[in-house]
C-alpha cells in the first residue's frame, strides 16, 4: 500500500532557485522548470531513525564537544515542535542543527574568518522528537559573521536546521533566526524568501517561560513540514 500523498509544496512561499541578490544561486540554479511528479513509493517513504542511532548528549552543544570547560557565549535553550501542515505533531523524527560559535566562526576547515575557534564548542547537535513532536537543544547563541556576497554582507545570528519527516519528499533544511536581530532584514539569503510572513515564521521567539533561571535564556522555534492528504475518494484505483 502506498503511503498517503502530500500537499503540494507551495513554491511561492519558498525562495526561488534563482535569486540574484544571493550571488551563489546564480550559477547553481536550474534554468529549466522543475518537472512536477505525483508521489510514488520513492517519494512517500523515507528513512527512519531510533535512539540507537544517537546519544543522549548529542542535543547538548554546551557539553557534546567540551574539552576544557563550557564554551564561551550566551547560554540558550532552543526548543519547539515539529508539526505538519495539518498541525499534527511529527513524532520520532531526526532534527539536526549546526551553527557558528559565539564569535561567528564555524569549526570547519574551510572557514577562515578571524574570530577564534572555541576549543570547547563543536557546533552541531541532533535529537529525535518525542511522541508530541517536541525537541530541545542547549547551546550558545551564535555570532553574526561577515560573508562575501556584496563586499559588506553580514549574516544574522542563525542556526541551521535539518528535519526528515516520514517521507523523503518532506525533507527540509532551513535556518532559524533570533527575535529582534536587525540583520535579518538586511540579509540577502533571508531575503530570497519572497513573503515576509514566511520570513517571520523562521524567527524564533524569546520564550521566558522556558528559560532556566540564573542559567540559560530560551527561544522557541516550531518547524512545519508538508502535510499528508486525506484520501476521501479514490479516483483511480491501483491497477487502472
Amino acid at each position: 500500500m502506498t503511503p498517503a500523498e502530500l500537499y503540494q509544496r507551495n513554491r511561492e512561499w519558498h525562495p526561488p532557485a534563482y535569486a540574484p541578490d544571493y550571488k551563489t544561486s546564480v550559477a547553481r540554479s536550474p534554468r529549466n522548470a522543475l518537472l512536477s511528479l505525483q508521489g510514488s513509493m520513492s517519494e512517500l517513504t523515507g528513512p527512519t531513525f531510533g535512539h540507537n542511532d544517537i546519544d543522549p548528549l548529542d542535543n547538548d552543544l554546551i557539553r557534546n564537544y567540551a574539552q576544557s570547560g563550557d564554551p564561551i557565549g550566551e547560554r540558550i535553550i532552543v526548543h519547539g515542535r515539529v508539526l505538519d501542515e495539518n498541525a499534527r505533531p511529527v513524532p520520532n523524527t531526526l532534527v539536526e542543527i549546526w551553527q557558528a560559535n559565539a564569535g561567528g566562526r564555524y569549526r570547519h576547515k574551510k572557514d577562515t574568518y578571524l574570530a577564534p575557534i572555541d576549543p570547547s564548542f563543536g557546533g552541531c547537535g541532533r535529537t529525535l522528537t518525542d511522541a508530541d513532536g517536541q525537541y530541545v537543544f542547549r547551546t550558545v547563541k551564535p555570532g553574526a559573521y561577515p560573508w562575501r556576497n556584496w563586499v559588506n554582507n553580514w549574516r544574522p545570528a542563525h542556526i541551521h536546521v535539518s528535519v526528515f519527516g516520514a517521507a523523503f519528499a518532506q525533507r527540509l533544511i532551513t535556518q532559524m533566526y533570533f527575535e529582534g536581530d536587525p540583520l535579518i532584514a538586511k540579509c540577502p539569503i533571508v531575503q530570497t524568501i519572497p513573503d515576509k510572513r514566511a520570513v517571520d515564521q523562521l524567527v524564533a521567539a524569546l520564550d521566558l517561560n522556558a528559560t532556566v533561571p540564573l542559567d540559560s535564556i530560551a527561544y522557541k522555534f516550531d518547524i512545519v513540514l508538508r502535510g499528508h492528504r486525506s484520501t476521501f475518494f479514490e479516483n483511480r484505483p491501483e491497477g487502472n
Binding site: W13, D111, H160, T174, V190
Partner: peptide, 17 residues
C-alpha cells in the same frame, strides 16, 4: 492549515551538521 517552513540554503558549512 499551517504553512510549511520556508527552505533556506544549507550553506557552505553543511558538513559540520
Amino acid at each position: 492549515y499551517l504553512k510549511e517552513s520556508a527552505s533556506q540554503t544549507a550553506g557552505p558549512y553543511v558538513h559540520i551538521g
